[in-house]
C-alpha cells in the first residue's frame, strides 16, 4: 500500500482522526453521565425492581459505547472481531443464566 508520503492524504486522515476524537469525547461524557445516574439511582434508594434493570441496561449501553467508539468497532474491518465478541457474549449469557437459575441446591 501507499508507503510514500502523500501530504494531502495525511492531512485528510489527520482531520478524520480529529473528527473521531470529538466523538470519543462525547462518548466519554455519556459514560460518565451513565455512571452518575447508576450511582444516583442506588444512593436515592429507588425500588430495586426499578433500579436493577435500569443500572444493568445502563452498563450494557456504556459497554457498547466503549466497544464501538473506544475500541473502534465502528470502523471497517471489524466484522470478525464483532462476530467473535458476540459469540463470546452469547456463551457468557448462557453461562450466567444457568448460574442464576439452575444452580440447584
Amino acid at each position: 500500500m501507499a508507503r510514500d508520503t502523500n501530504s494531502t492524504s495525511t492531512e485528510f486522515y489527520r482531520k478524520k482522526n480529529k473528527e473521531e476524537m470529538k466523538y470519543q469525547l462525547v462518548t466519554f461524557a455519556a459514560m460518565i453521565v451513565f455512571t452518575l445516574v447508576s450511582f444516583g439511582l442506588v444512593i436515592g434508594e429507588f425500588h430495586p425492581m426499578f433500579t436493577i434493570p435500569v443500572i444493568i441496561l445502563l452498563a450494557c449501553v456504556q459497554v457498547a459505547f466503549q466497544l464501538y467508539y473506544f475500541m473502534h468497532m465502528n470502523h471497517k474491518g471489524h466484522g470478525l472481531p464483532a462476530l467473535f465478541l458476540y459469540s463470546g457474549v452469547f456463551v457468557a449469557i448462557l453461562t450466567i443464566l444457568a448460574m442464576v437459575t439452575i444452580v440447584w441446591w
Binding site: P81, G88, V89, A92, I96, M99
Partner: peptide, 24 residues
C-alpha cells in the same frame, strides 16, 4: 489485531464464568 480480538472473546467467557459463580 485479529488474534487479540479473539482472545478478548474468550476472556468474555472467562469473566462470565466468574460473574456467574459470584451471582450464585
Amino acid at each position: 489485531f485479529l488474534g487479540f480480538w479473539f482472545f478478548l472473546g474468550g476472556e468474555t467467557v472467562l469473566f462470565a464464568s466468574l460473574f456467574g459463580t459470584y451471582l450464585a
